[in-house]
Structures are given as structure tokens and as C-alpha cells.
Design a protein around this nucleic acid. Structure first.
Lengths: 204, 204
DNA sequence: TTTTTCTGACATGCGCTATTGTCAGAATTA
DNA sequence: TAATTCTGACAATAGCGCATGTCAGAAAAA
């Protein structure tokens, strides 16, 4: 509606720049709040307070609570996937060693950022259709990454291993959940080794 | 409060018998409704209507919605576990064959009862602390069953494979989810074979 | 300084469902 | 038939958070 306006600069930033900055703050706060108290228990109000903003700015950038959850999840998960992808690409050893390195990095990130881990391992699940879709897409990406890592020269009949790949990813997540619940009892290396045992099924 | 009363028989059944019968009807209806439209979208009212009862009888037997979900889940899941346990116990072949038989039965049940499958594979997850507890307990039971099936003479250091077992169960569930989402595309045998590939990690 | 735009605090309405309560009438017993 | 208990339909209340609206004052521009 009221466009053509808003070319005034505040603090040296344009309207759009300010809006994007607020958006970022909301995403950052949401990651924290959702990870800490759980998406279900987090109110829009609480996220806004954590961001030091009021609801007005929430609806300025997001249609609803789920949209913010998706944005936060996207941010966190793409950062993770990119990191793992880099490790995979640049690793020089055998497929098995490469697998261990990638899994090690995965669980290391979960341990280093428990709040983010809670968000994208636990909180993302079963929120609603739109969110589930995003979560499912990440699982697929993760599965493909694992397959590329452990079986780079995969032949044509990938189709036959689709369920196996889904299963392997499910195992990674479940292991993460159990590990998190245990308070990160075992070492990252040990967890990665356990996970790798299961992932080796992808090389068959 | 008002006890000592209620000894009158209606339809040849005592007060308690009638109450239990209504309870059963509610559980049966809940399984159906929760599996069909999802626990989140199901109202107490809808379950009661499906059972042919009114809300009054809901609160007669259950404290709240979650209590009914737990009861329904318990009913369905114990039936399943008992079935699998029987197959495991009575199977005469090798560990690998036995594993295939058990997994086959598992996925066959999911296929034969899609509504129940939706309930205890999908709907049970992330409802609330109490429900999560029940779900986690089932996963543990399932994991132990799988371990017993594939590695009956397990030695002392089970501890070291705890995460692996959790992973295997996670894989079974994820495979089930993907298979359900695909509209049960592959045959039960093929799915069981895929699942078994992962479960063989339990024999190491 | 005056005008315009942006900002933060607050309040209100709205929709939704769980849960409790009421009451007339049906089923059963005496 | 009369008295008692059970049953089903419906009403009323309560609680909760999202989403939107209002308004005075701050910050920038002219």
C-alpha cells in the first residue's frame, strides 16, 4: 500500500536495510528461543522480546510463527550443510576416512552449538505441513551428501537404495537425539564411529 | 466422592463394566481419528462423536487428550511388539533369516493397518513430555527386540552399542515414514530387505 | 523550527477448544 | 407405578496467544 515513501535514512541505513537488520535479529533470537524453550512453548512475544523488538516488526518480516521457524532452520541448516560439503570435497583420504571426517564434523557442530542442535534435530519436527516439508528436504540433502561421501562413483540404480539412504539419515538423527539426551556422554569421535558403522551400508 | 452407589446393572453390566466398555470404545475411536486426521487436528469432541459418546464419558476415563493418546498408543504398540516377539521366539532359521522375518512382519503390519501405522509412526512424536516418554520407551523395546533377534548371544559390552542400536531403530522408523509417504510403493519383502541391511550392523 | 516518517509500548478483538455444569428424559429396580 | 440411577444433548465458562490497531514521542529532513 503506502509505498513510494520510506526513502528516509535512519542511522545511515535505508528503510530496507533497517528492515533486513531487524529480520536478522529476529532470526537470531528465534534460533536461541526456539532451541531453549522449544518452538511449541515459545510465543511470538517472547521471540520479539529476545530480539529487543516488538510484535509489529515480527509481522513486518514474517507472515506467522512458522515462517520464522523456517527461516531460522534454513539459516542454521544451510550453514551446516555447506560446512560438511566443504569437508567432503576437500578431504583427500579414502571414502571411509572421508565419511568419518564428515560425520565427525556433523556431531562436533551439534556439540558446539547445543541450542542450534536442539532446533534442527528436535524442534523442527512435526510442527506443520510447511515446516515438515523443509525438514524433509534437508533430510534428503543430508542423505545425498552422505551417499556422495561414502560412495562417490555410485552407479545408475540409485533408486533401489532410496529407502536405505533414508534409513541411514534416520539413524544419524536418532543417534544425535540419543547423544544429546545423554548430555553428550560419549566423545565426538566415538559417536562418529558408531554412526559410520551404519553409514557403511551406503557403500554396498 | 459419591461412591458406595453405582451397583445397579444396566443391560446386564455393572457400572464398572460399562465404564470400561466406554473406555475401550474411546480408545478404538481415538486410534482411528488420530490416525486419520492427526492428533493435532483431532478435537476431544470429534473423538467422542466417533465413539458415539459425549464428552462427559471422555473425562470419566481420561484426564485429558494426551492420556487417551497414550492409551491408544499403548494398545496398538503392545499388540505389535507381542506379535514380533512371538515370531522371533518361534523362528527356527538363522539369525539373518529371523531378522528378515521379524522386519517383514513389522512392515506388513504397517501396511495392513495404515491408520494405526500413522498413529504410532508419526502422530506419537513430539506431542508432549509424557507422550514422548512413552514413545521413547517403545523405541528402546524395539531396539532390544532387534538386538535379541539378530545377535541373541550378545556379550557383556552392550553399552558400547547403545547408540548404534538407537540408530538402527531410527533407521527402521525413517524407512517406515518414507515408505508410507511413497504410498507403500515397494513390496514388503523389499522394504524388509533394505531394513535388514542396516540392522546387520547389530551383529558386529 | 516545523513537518514528516519511524519507532516502541500498549490494548483490543478474535478464534478456538478444553473442561465443567445443567437438565430433561430413558432405563432399571422395587 | 414410583423411586432411583444413568445417559445424552447442550450451554457456559475459561484460557490462550495470534494478529491488528492506536497513539504519543523520537529521529531525521526541510
Amino acid at each position: 500500500m503506502a509505498e513510494t515513501a520510506g526513502q528516509r535514512h535512519y542511522g545511515g541505513h535505508s528503510t530496507e536495510q533497517r528492515r533486513l537488520a531487524r529480520r536478522e535479529r529476529l532470526i537470531e533470537a528465534a534460533t536461541r528461543v526456539y532451541g531453549e524453550v522449544g518452538y511449541r512453548n515459545a510465543t511470538v512475544k517472547a521471540v520479539c522480546e529476545a530480539a529487543g523488538l516488538t510484535e509489529r516488526y515480527f509481522y513486518e518480516s514474517f507472515a506467522n510463527s512458522e515462517a520464522l521457524l523456517i527461516a531460522a532452520f534454513d539459516t542454521v541448516s544451510h550453514r551446516l550443510i555447506d560446512c560438511l560439503e566443504t569437508i567432503r570435497r576437500e578431504h583427500a583420504g579414502t571414502a571411509d576416512e572421508r565419511g568419518h571426517a564428515v560425520l565427525r564434523a556433523y556431531y562436533q557442530v551439534l556439540k558446539d552449538d547445543p541450542v542450534g542442535a536442539q532446533l534442527f534435530v528436535v524442534e523442527i519436527a512435526r510442527v506443520g505441513p510447511a515446516v515438515d516439508e523443509v525438514g524433509a528436504a534437508l533430510l534428503r540433502e543430508f542423505g545425498e551428501l552422505l551417499a556422495r561421501t561414502l560412495a562417490p562413483e555410485t552407479n545408475a540404480r540409485l533408486k533401489s537404495t532410496e529407502l536405505v539412504r533414508a534409513g541411514a539419515v534416520g539413524a544419524m538423527i536418532q543417534i544425535a537425539k540419543a547423544w544429546i539426551r545423554s548430555g553428550y556422554a560419549k566423545s565426538v569421535d566415538a559417536v562418529a564411529a558408531d554412526a559410520l558403522k551404519i553409514c557403511r551400508v551406503l557403500t554396498e
